[in-house]
Simulated scan of single mutants.
Amino acid sequence: MNTNTPTVKNGDLLIAEPFMGDTNFERSVVLVCEHSDAGTFGLVLNQLTDIHLSDVIEEVQADLPLFVGGPVQQNTLHFIHRRPDLIDNSIRISDGLYWSGDFEQVKQAVNLGTLADQDIRFFIGYSGWSEGQLDEELVQKAWIVSRTNADFLFDTPTNEFWRGVLKRMGGEYKSIAHYPVDPRLN
């Protein structure tokens, strides 16, 4: 791999280049949940749907929003959170950020109101890369890699996420944040 190519680790964000050309990831920010030699699993953080968790899980009474985690297996449900104290078997992604866990506990905590919507996000589908695929996309400069923390991830409004991550990175990235979706409109 090219030494100028950024390395990726669990908890990193993949920020889509402004003119990537892939409609699945236009202006997307993907959280890397698991990255290894075998491949990469991630969740798009800023593609909100009109569907709520209560629409797909009838035992849940709360109207928590669902996000499109990616184009792969959109019949699956995934979640990230910052409450391992309430959810057993959580998988640590990075400091204060967890993926998956005991879904029965999640449903119960959501229904009781002990798990607030600002502490958990639900996704249908996921983003996946086979062995070496993400590395190749990084060489092609399709993604900008950034570090994050759980507070920024959960506290930043969805519609401001792509720009917010780039602005926070500063320098040349701050100017990229202002690129129009269609450069002909500039």
Rank of each mutant, 00 (worst) to 15 (best):
Q133F: 06
I80Y: 05
I93W: 07
L153W: 02
I91D: 06
F154K: 03
G96D: 09
L64E: 05
T49R: 13
T76R: 09
L53W: 08
A62I: 12
T76A: 03
R147F: 03
N111E: 11
Q105K: 13
D135E: 15
L166N: 03
L115W: 12
D117F: 02
T158V: 15
G96H: 08
L138P: 01
N111M: 10
Y126H: 10
W143D: 05
F67Q: 05
G125Y: 01
F122K: 03
S130M: 11
Q108P: 00
I144V: 14
V110F: 08
D102Y: 04
E59C: 06
D135P: 00
I87C: 01
L45V: 05
G96E: 09
I144A: 04
V56M: 14
A150M: 07
I144F: 13
Y98H: 15
V68Y: 03
V145M: 04
H81Y: 04
I93F: 03
R163P: 00
E131I: 01
R163I: 00
F79W: 09
Q47A: 12
F103D: 05
L43V: 07
G125N: 06
T76Q: 08
E160Y: 10
H52E: 13
L97I: 06
I93R: 03
F154G: 02
I91R: 13
V60P: 11
I93D: 02
D50R: 11
R121S: 11
Q74T: 13
N75H: 09
H78G: 04
L166G: 03
W99E: 08
W143T: 06
L115E: 06
E136T: 15
R147K: 14
F154V: 01
Q118T: 13
I120M: 06
